[in-house]
C-alpha cells in the first residue's frame, strides 16, 4: 500500500473513533487524556500548525481544561479522577498549542510539586533510588515513562532549567539498561541485567532530545547512552510491527535525526494490522505521528537536535 493510502485510511479511522470531546483507549470508549492528546497531535500535524489546528484539536484542549481539579491535577478521564499521571500529557498538549487555558498554570504547579517516592537503594538494585522523578501513581516510586513525559511537558513550558526538570533528566540518564535503551525503569534486579524495550526507549530519547543541556550533550557518557539507545532501536524495530513500540521508537529516533530506510514499510505493515483489528486510537495516532515524524515533532514542538560527531549527514550511525 502506498504511504498516502494507508495514512489516509488510518486518519479516517482515527477521526471516526472520536468519542465526544476526545478519544478513548478503545474505539468505543469514553475519552481519556493520553489518547486524546496523541490524536490531537495528529490533527495538528496533518491540518496545519498549532495556530490553525482544526476544531477537534481545539476541543481536546478545552476538554482537558475541564478535567483540572482544584489542586491542578488531572485524572485519567472525566470518570477516573486518579491517578494523575495524565497531568503531564495535558500540559504538553496545551503548551504546544495556540493558547493554554487558565488552568494550565495550576496544572504545571501541581506537576512541579509531585515527586516519586525515594529511598536508600537496597542491595542488588541497579539504579539510584534517591533521584526524584515522577511516578505512575502518587506515593510510589518514579519510572521512566511518566518521568519522560513530565520532562517533555516542562521543557515545552519553558522550564528546561527548573530543578525538577533537571531531576527528571538525571533519572532518565540513570535508568538505561546496561546493554542500552530503556525499559519501564528497572535496570538490574537481584544482580541480573534486564532487557530494554522499544517504546520506553523512544519516549526517553524524545524527552532527552528536548532537555539535554549543551554540556550534557558533550559528555561522553551521555553520548554513549544516546548512541546505545539508538543502536538498540535500529536493531529492534525491524523485528516488530507492534504500533506503540514502532511509533514511539521511530519518534524517538527522529528526535535525534535518525530514520531507518524501511520505516515507511514497517509503518504500512503495522497500520494494516491495526486497521484490520481496530485496536484503537493510540495505535493509529502513534503510527501516523511516526509516518511524518519530522513534522510531528514540530507540531509537538520538540526541538530536534543532531549529534554531528555521532551521526553521519545521512542520519545513520557511522
Amino acid at each position: 500500500m502506498k504511504k498516502a493510502d494507508w495514512t489516509v485510511a488510518a486518519l479516517k479511522q482515527l477521526q471516526t473513533s472520536r468519542s465526544g470531546a476526545g478519544w478513548g483507549y478503545r474505539p468505543d470508549d469514553v475519552p481519556y487524556v493520553e489518547p486524546s492528546v496523541l490524536a490531537g497531535f495528529v490533527l495538528r500535524t496533518w491540518y496545519g500548525d498549532a495556530r490553525h489546528s482544526p476544531a477537534a484539536a481545539t476541543g481536546v484542549s478545552h476538554w482537558l481544561g475541564s478535567l483540572v481539579q482544584d489542586d491542578g491535577a488531572i485524572g485519567l478521564s472525566s470518570q477516573l479522577a486518579r491517578p494523575h499521571w495524565s497531568t503531564a500529557w495535558a500540559i504538553w498538549y496545551w503548551r504546544t498549542g495556540p493558547q493554554a487555558p487558565p488552568q494550565g498554570q495550576a496544572a504545571t504547579g501541581w506537576l512541579l510539586s509531585r515527586i516519586g517516592d525515594t529511598f536508600p537503594a537496597p542491595d542488588n538494585v541497579g539504579h539510584d533510588t534517591t533521584i526524584p522523578g515522577w511516578p505512575w501513581v502518587e506515593g510510589t516510586h518514579s519510572w521512566v515513562e511518566p518521568t519522560a513525559i513530565a520532562v517533555q511537558a516542562l521543557c515545552v513550558s519553558g522550564l528546561s532549567d527548573h530543578p525538577r526538570t533537571r531531576d527528571g533528566v538525571r533519572l532518565l540518564l540513570n535508568r538505561p539498561v546496561p546493554s542500552g535503551g530503556w525499559n519501564m525503569g528497572n535496570r538490574v534486579t537481584k544482580g541480573t541485567a534486564l532487557r530494554a524495550q522499544c517504546a520506553p526507549t523512544g519516549i526517553a530519547l524524545l524527552a532527552l532530545a528536548s532537555s539535554l543541556t549543551a554540556r550534557q550533550r558533550a559528555d561522553s557518557q551521555v553520548r554513549a547512552t544516546i548512541e546505545q539507545a539508538i543502536e538498540f532501536l535500529l536493531a529492534s524495530l525491524p523485528q516488530t510491527r507492534a504500533p506503540r513500540s514502532l511509533g514511539w521508537g521511530l519518534l524517538g529516533l527522529a528526535a535525534w535525526d535518525v530514520r531507518p530506510d524501511d520505516a515507511d514499510l514497517w509503518l504500512a505493515e503495522s497500520t494494516a494490522k491495526a486497521l484490520d483489528r481496530n485496536i484503537g486510537p493510540v495505535a493509529l495516532a502513534l503510527l501516523l505521528l511516526a509516518s511524518r515524524a519530522g513534522r510531528s515533532l514540530e507540531s509537538m514542538r520538540v526541538p530536534t537536535h543532531t549529534l554531528p560527531s555521532v551521526l553521519s549527514p545521512a542520519g545513520a550511525l557511522p
Binding site: 477516573l80 486518579r82 537496597p122 533510588t129 501513581v137 502518587e138
Partner: peptide, 15 residues
C-alpha cells in the same frame, strides 16, 4: 472516582 493510591506499608516495597 479514584484508582487506588498510596499505601504506607513499606517505603522499600519497590523491591
Amino acid at each position: 472516582s479514584n484508582c487506588p493510591g498510596k499505601s504506607t506499608i513499606s517505603r522499600r516495597a519497590l523491591l
